[in-house]
Amino acid sequence: MTRSSANKAFAAGGLGLAIALFLGAYNFPDRAADAARYIFFLAGTMAVLSLILFVQKIPSPDSDVRWVRSVRNFTITLVVLGVYGLLIPWLGFFPASGLFMAVLGWLLGFRRPFFLLLGIAIILGFVYIVFAHFLGVPIPMGIWGE
């Protein structure tokens, strides 16, 4: 992807966000008219900046932008992160996190099971002791209940 096409993609994203903000604020009730006015201002400014970015000329020659250096690993990480997010409410934080770290570590090429499991146990044990036991942070338990 070239720098100018990356800029155009960002500009399109900015415009999309501005439209979404405008539509969101349009549905605010009358009592929140001031809040809506502020959102309209932000949406308008974002739209103008996106349009400027869209039409802005890049000094030639247009350089290549390489976002992802390893497509396989990047895709694996993205998919596993997404699955992890979906699993937390169902499986609970600790089993989902353990599974996430084990699967991601293994798929990214870490082939020492003992150290992988030991690392996971230490991290999750630490999180449990500090956050769950001492600080009492509510942690999603999923199917295991409260």
Partner: peptide, 13 residues
Amino acid sequence: MVKGLMSGFLGLV
């Protein structure tokens, strides 16, 4: 600068 300002406004959003 346009990208910088967009990032700033994204923060405000």
